[in-house]
Nucleic acid binder design. Structure first.
Length: 195
DNA sequence: TAGAGGATTGAT
DNA sequence: TCAATCCTCTAC
């Protein structure tokens, strides 16, 4: 069942980042369906320096973050990786959840082909690899998560005792905000990214 | 309009 | 430890 718009309109992005663990990310690209169970997320808010929209700074790139929750924010990182985010909160409140890793549950053969891999190990364990395996590209930036090529559906809930909170990856430039425990992953899950 | 740098990854 | 690779933003 596709998540309702209300799920994304919640005003606490950190809460949504936790709840997204266990949910199922589904893509339908050129008729090819792939799906993964989300096992790792990070929260970003206009209130802190790790976020592209810090201090309500709006640019052509991050404009999608200022829309009402429930759309995709896809951007290019390091000139070669597409990173997939879920926009949350109400319009004008720029917050988003970065999906960092997922456990393949459908279309594994398609993912293997996209990754040029032969074994179903660690092909989605990282934000750049995840988008490649699922076929997510920047053309999906701004797409609705309710009825487009990318949707998120209910899955098996993760018990809170199995959710680990740590600091986020790769945002040393954010100063003290880099210390916020806004990264969440499923305990002992082999699909969580290593760093 | 030029220049610096990045929410990464995989090979060395 | 480092290169690949190119878009985005800032400063001039």
């Amino acid at each position: 069942m596709i998540l309702a718009p209300q799920f994304y309109h919640h005003t606490q992005v950190v809460s949504i980042a936790r709840k997204l663990l266990g949910k199922v990310l589904i893509t339908r690209i050129n008729g090819e369906v792939t799906a993964g169970r989300i096992v790792e997320t990070e929260a970003y808010s206009f209130k802190e320096r790790g976020c592209h929209a810090y201090n309500n700074r709006k640019t052509p790139r991050n404009a999608v973050m200022f829309e009402a929750g429930g759309v995709a924010y896809v951007y290019l990182c390091y000139g070669m990786h597409n990173l997939f985010n879920v926009v949350t909160n109400k319009a004008g409140r720029a917050e988003a959840v970065l999906i960092r890793a997922a456990e393949p549950i459908a279309g594994q053969d398609i993912m293997l082909r996209r990754m040029k891999a032969h074994k179903l190990t660690r092909i989605t364990s990282g934000p750049g690899k995840l988008t490649r395996a699922l076929g997510i590209e920047r053309t999906l930036n701004g797409a609705s998560l309710l009825n487009s090529a990318v949707t998120i559906e209910t899955g098996i809930p993760v018990r809170s005792k199995n959710i680990i909170a740590t600091t986020r990856i790769g945002i040393d430039y954010a100063g003290t905000d880099a210390m916020l425990p806004w990264r969440f992953y499923v305990k002992d899950n082999e699909w969580v990214s290593k760093w």
